[in-house]
Write a protein that binds this DNA or RNA. Sequence first.
DNA 1: ATAACAAAGATTGCATACAAATATTGCCTT
DNA 2: AAGGCAATATTTGTATGCAATCTTTGTTAT
Lengths: 227, 227
Amino acid sequence: MNKPESPRTPLHDGVLERLRQMIIRCELQPGDRISEADLGRTFGVSRTPLREALKILSAEGLVDIRPHKGAIVADISMDEISETFALMSALELMAGPLVCERVSNIDLQMLDSLIQEMDACQLRNDLMTYFELNTEFHNRIIRLTGNSVLTQVYVDMFGKLQRARYRVNYDPQRWHESSTEHHWIMESLRARDGEELGVRLKEHNARTATAVVEGLKASSLANAQRD
Amino acid sequence: MNKPESPRTPLHDGVLERLRQMIIRCELQPGDRISEADLGRTFGVSRTPLREALKILSAEGLVDIRPHKGAIVADISMDEISETFALMSALELMAGPLVCERVSNIDLQMLDSLIQEMDACQLRNDLMTYFELNTEFHNRIIRLTGNSVLTQVYVDMFGKLQRARYRVNYDPQRWHESSTEHHWIMESLRARDGEELGVRLKEHNARTATAVVEGLKASSLANAQRD
DNA sequence: ATAACAAAGATTGCATACAAATATTGCCTT
DNA sequence: AAGGCAATATTTGTATGCAATCTTTGTTAT
């Protein structure tokens, strides 16, 4: 039915990735029940690999599994969003000095070109690609710490928040602000000022947090009125 | 065969917990292959729940699964240990002020009694219980931040490092130092001095890190000579 | 009409069976 | 004797079947 693809990659890996994307992109919304049989049919696989994928997503916090009652897409509360942003602030504060110790000119070039692409996205109003590039930008910076444990945690957090970002109607003004902040961040990087970089990353993060939380409040308010 | 226990808790949960403990306690050593059939026999379950547990442990980073080649207990490198300690330092620095804002006198009492128990363990040389109480002590402090995301990450990190702690022959002198540092930490808590608490937690952590890394170096050196 | 209960239906949890891939063993060749 | 190849054996990946649990629907009694 499907093309053979590569028989080397286990089936549940593909299922896992597809499910994760569906959840992050809000195609499956928080609270949605996940029927093993149904999803198995849509993916064309049996329940076994699907269950394995669900267990992993549960460990990642993207789904909740209630014994004998099935899996649902995990809800992410406003509190959890705020707490996650707060945690990321701490990680970025830690990252600043480490990154500046290790960042090379080639790294700077690479980040610059990412920013250029992001600016281009902004001009043609391509929010989706912007999100992906933005993720790439921030993850790369953290990866420059050379601390892979830190990076792993950061990337996970970013992924969890991505759902929230997709949900809010991004404010054009905030979008512009954000780009400016990116340029400031690059400045600190070029100056190799670790403390300053940490602070700027942290502040950028805090502003994004505010924007996302405000956006969510607004949209949930709109929903409440609609109901 | 087994007592009915509680039929409400899914089987793979029990398997998961037993496996996790076996890995943390180094009963299964890094690099050990995990045969699904074998482990299934020893636990008295089929491969299905076992595989689900393995997938979760893989997501937690305690085992590595290589497609078509089976699972092995994940190795934790010296680098990863150092990086994890560094990350925890950042988390503790962040935690300090947050904890001091929220800690109640009852919390202080509870932590005090934990310290008393730990001191007792030290007197009777009960390292195992000490480890458990120590874990409890630090996790509780972080939980007092009220940030559950931070707490989750911290607890995970602590668990990952627990393996390393179990492996090193704990230096009695370091044990004593550590107790003293715990008392300092309590002092900062009682004074509600958030900055100071953060720094003391961080320094305590850094010293533990040094002790563990040195201990591991020594024991791996001993192993190398033995071979 | 509403609430409580019961039985049918659907879904999850686990075990087993089979297919595909890898590891191992023994033989043959050089 | 050493290396390569082939056949066997073991192990993983997936599908399916059955039992236990939950959900839903329909009935009855208040």
